[in-house]
Design a protein around this nucleic acid. Structure first.
Lengths: 129, 129
DNA sequence: CTGAATCCTTCGGGATACTG
DNA sequence: CAGTATCCCGAAGGATTCAG
């Protein structure tokens, strides 16, 4: 099919749609945005992140960090110490991602009243059926 | 916790974090972006969308449309005809969402080479273990 | 301390069949 | 035509345990 008529579909599908989707999945994922947000402030250790992110499990933190590292959005540094110490930091690429994410967040902030109102209307109509 | 030190976390968590997440879920969802993209071109009927979106099931199309309608991103119009006809169109709100989504897509397009290269490096390192 | 491995539950989402 | 209802599977993700 031809997406050129829609700028949004065009840019989403030009080149590698799978790559685009994989990044959307990161952004849409529950933890990655907050991990990058924390790491762009300053480097964090594993346990530090674990404590800073309410509700995340060790497993999910590990997976999130590996995925973000694989995409080059964060970096991992291991210190040869006892006890072991590992620091994670955001890369320039990871920090640059915050710009479009902030744009999206800003859109939500700007329209949240509108969205909430529509939901209330739709839900009310559904209830009265 | 205090997110004010990170602009990204701050704006993602000010107001209603759940609302923000729900919108991220839409954007991160497999079908919603393409549905909005098609509807911002022109109104489509249900079956038209079904045929225009390869791989989507009736069930998922229905769910996607309901969700988008609930958020006020698209509109549904039922024509009292035989056979039944239903048209979906993007609302102004839905069309406005394409702007930050395009910003995100543009970021991916701008950095996809970098991401792919990092992945290749990381994967190669993992293989040689 | 920083994970990896395992188990187990939940849930998104596909296939299919039925309805107004 | 435009859905709804049901079944079912695979993947996501939490809890727990083991290891370097």
């Amino acid at each position: 099919m031809d997406y050129s008529a829609s700028p949004m579909l065009h840019i989403c599908n030009e080149g590698d749609p799978a790559l685009f989707r994989s990044i959307l999945d990161r952004v849409g994922s529950k933890w990655t945005v907050i991990v990058i947000g924390l790491l762009e402030q300053r480097p964090h250790r594993f346990t530090e992140l674990l404590n800073a992110i309410p509700g995340i499990s060790r497993r999910m933190l590990t997976i999130s960090l590996r995925t973000l590292e694989r995409d080059g959005l964060i970096e991992r540094e291991v210190f040869a110490e006892v006890p072991p110490r590992v620091e994670y930091r955001a890369t320039a690429l990871g920090i640059s991602l915050s710009e479009p994410v902030i744009a999206l967040a800003t859109w939500v902030a700007d329209h949240k009243a509108e969205i909430a109102a529509t939901r209330a209307t739709v839900d009310a109509a559904a209830d009265s059926e």
